[in-house]
Amino acid sequence: MSDHWTIDRGLVERIAKVARLELTEDEIEKFTKQLKVILEAFRELDDVDTEGVEPSFHPQELSNVLREDEATPWSWDPLENTEHREGRYFKGPRIQ
């Protein structure tokens, strides 16, 4: 793994923004410290030679599990679990 990055507050804040997670000052500080330790430990992967090794997306590779193109309506009320609704719409926050 390259050394072009450093794990600091800025990085944690950036990740939190990407992940839409509001963090407190304490959390940012704590996570920054812990991330350094954890990601440093994960670097032991560098020791494994994976040249020419295929990634395993699943433990056993299955393929071509497909469904036929048939419309099979689901009978339910999609709005049953939400408070944020207006008529038959879900109601969401504004964009900007």
Binding site: W5, V12, I15, A19, L45, V48, V53, E54, P55, S56
Partner: peptide, 25 residues
């Protein structure tokens, strides 16, 4: 936070993809 980091552009190959190859091992 950790999981988002491991798949971010620039880190993804070194973490996410590498971990999948080690999984093969």
């Amino acid at each position: 936070i950790l999981g988002t980091f491991t798949r971010m552009a620039g880190y993804r190959d070194a973490y996410y993809m590498k971990a999948l190859r080690v999984r093969t091992r």
